[in-house]
C-alpha cells in the first residue's frame, strides 16, 4: 500500500483543526475553552510517524502552554470521554489518535 506523505497528513490535520474552530464558534460543537485549546493543540501538533500524537507534544504546543497541569489533564480526559481523542493502541496513556 502506498504511504501518504507526512506533509500531506500534517496539512490535513492543520486544516481540520482550523475548520473545527468554525464549527465551535458557529455553535455546532460544545466544548469548554481548555478542551478546545487542548484539542486544537492536539490537531496542530505534529503527528508522529506511526500516526499518533503524543501528550508531551500537545502539552508543548503554544495553544496549550497557558493551561495548568490539572486543567490540561482534565481537558485531555474529557476529550477522550467525549470521543474527540482515542488512546492509541498499546499505550495506556501518553499517545492519542484524533477521532
Amino acid at each position: 500500500m502506498m504511504k501518504t506523505p507526512h506533509t500531506l497528513l500534517s496539512s490535513m490535520s492543520q486544516l481540520r483543526a482550523l475548520l473545527f474552530g468554525v464549527e465551535v464558534e458557529a455553535g455546532l460543537q460544545k466544548l469548554s475553552a481548555p478542551e478546545r485549546d487542548v484539542l486544537y493543540a492536539a490537531m496542530s501538533a505534529h503527528l508522529s510517524r506511526d500516526g499518533f500524537v503524543r501528550s508531551d507534544e500537545i502539552r508543548g504546543n503554544a495553544l496549550a502552554e497557558h493551561l495548568t497541569d490539572p486543567t490540561f489533564q482534565r481537558a485531555l480526559r474529557s476529550l477522550v470521554e467525549k470521543g474527540y481523542l482515542r488512546k492509541a493502541p498499546g499505550y495506556k496513556r501518553g499517545a492519542y489518535i484524533l477521532s
Binding site: 483543526a17 474552530g21 496542530s44 503554544a62 495553544l63
Partner: peptide, 8 residues
C-alpha cells in the same frame, strides 16, 4: 507556531 495559527 504562532498563537493565532488556527484562528479562522
Amino acid at each position: 507556531g504562532a498563537p493565532r495559527r488556527l484562528d479562522w
